[in-house]
């Protein structure tokens, strides 16, 4: 469950870049660790993100986890369906459960490819 065409942050967000627009979500591993999500808090369209900064949070019944921006740029769209249906992040973390779209400014650094991310979660799982 680690799509090869995506990039990953060490904090378990994924990024898919098309042109200058990045779609951001959290990985299958992350949603599994959190359990059934009950709430997703996202920034407003127009907010500017700085790579590595907190931009929102996800909550389950027993845990809350901050989300960190894997890229820098301006938020141009957020997944509004998550407000009523946070379970989409559990059911489809890489497709319907995407979080936001960002117009990238500057090259993100330190993102992992699928293999490196697989190694990372392997080590965290133990």
């Amino acid at each position: 469950m680690i799509p090869a065409d995506l990039k990953y942050a060490k904090t378990h967000e994924w990024v898919k870049v098309v042109g200058d627009v990045a779609t951001v979500g959290i990985s299958h591993f992350a949603q599994e660790q959190l359990g059934d999500l009950t709430f997703v808090e996202l920034p407003a369209v127009g907010d500017t993100l700085e790579q590595g900064e907190e931009f929102g949070s996800v909550e389950s019944v027993k845990a809350a986890s901050e989300l960190y921006a894997p890229v820098s740029g301006e938020v141009i769209e957020v997944n509004e369906e998550l407000e009523d249906a946070p379970e989409k992040v559990n059911e489809s973390p890489f497709e319907e459960g995407w979080l936001l779209k960002v117009r990238i400014s500057g090259e993100p650094d330190g993102l992992l490819d699928a293999d490196a991310y697989a190694t990372l979660i392997e080590s965290e799982a133990h």
Binding site: T38, F39, V61, K62, A63, A64, E66
Partner: peptide
């Protein structure tokens, strides 16, 4: 419910 707001989960946040 909505316990993720609270100190026993969020601690200093």
């Amino acid at each position: 419910t909505l316990q993720a707001r609270e100190q026993h989960i969020r601690r200093q946040k």
